[in-house]
Amino acid sequence: MLKVSILAVLCYYWLALVPSNVPCWESFVGQDVYRLVIVDFIFCLLGSFCGEYLYNVIATRCVVKPAEFDVARNVLDLINAQTLAW
């Protein structure tokens, strides 16, 4: 829900505020979307590699049963990334 609300706020910003203040608003929105996709990709990589790696190391050393791959969360992250790319 947080990711959807971020997209809703951005769409409101782009539709309500940008066309009146920027002469070439298509380029401005395209640059913002490109910036959002790049930053989201970087944070997804950091979250996947650093966050899940550290969680797995801590779980295997402190708990007998290692952590399992969370399919649902990773699929939702992929859907969010595809939404941003479209």
Score class of each variant (00 low, 15 high):
residue 13 Y to G: 08
residue 14 W to T: 02
residue 15 L to W: 09
residue 16 A to R: 14
residue 20 S to D: 15
residue 21 N to H: 09
residue 22 V to P: 03
residue 23 P to N: 04
residue 24 C to R: 11
residue 25 W to N: 05
residue 25 W to T: 01
residue 26 E to S: 10
residue 27 S to Q: 07
residue 27 S to C: 02
residue 28 F to H: 10
residue 28 F to V: 00
residue 29 V to E: 07
residue 29 V to P: 05
residue 29 V to N: 01
residue 29 V to I: 15
residue 30 G to E: 07
residue 30 G to P: 00
residue 31 Q to W: 07
residue 32 D to I: 06
residue 32 D to R: 14
residue 32 D to N: 15
residue 33 V to T: 13
residue 34 Y to L: 06
residue 35 R to G: 02
residue 35 R to L: 07
residue 36 L to F: 11
residue 36 L to K: 05
residue 37 V to F: 03
residue 38 I to T: 05
residue 38 I to G: 01
residue 39 V to M: 03
residue 39 V to F: 14
residue 40 D to P: 00
residue 41 F to N: 04
residue 41 F to S: 07
residue 41 F to A: 14
residue 42 I to N: 02
residue 44 C to K: 03
residue 46 L to D: 03
residue 46 L to K: 00
residue 47 G to N: 07
residue 47 G to M: 06
residue 47 G to D: 04
residue 49 F to P: 02
residue 49 F to G: 13
residue 50 C to N: 05
residue 51 G to R: 02
residue 52 E to G: 01
residue 52 E to Q: 04
residue 53 Y to K: 05
residue 53 Y to R: 03
residue 53 Y to I: 09
residue 53 Y to H: 01
residue 55 Y to R: 06
residue 58 I to W: 11
residue 58 I to A: 07
residue 58 I to T: 12
residue 59 A to P: 00
residue 59 A to L: 05
residue 59 A to K: 11
residue 60 T to G: 00
residue 60 T to N: 09
residue 62 C to I: 08
residue 62 C to P: 00
residue 62 C to Q: 08
residue 63 V to S: 13
residue 63 V to F: 13
residue 63 V to A: 09
residue 63 V to Q: 14
residue 64 V to L: 14
residue 64 V to I: 12
residue 64 V to M: 10
residue 64 V to N: 15
residue 64 V to A: 13
residue 67 A to I: 08
residue 69 F to T: 09
residue 69 F to S: 06
residue 69 F to K: 06
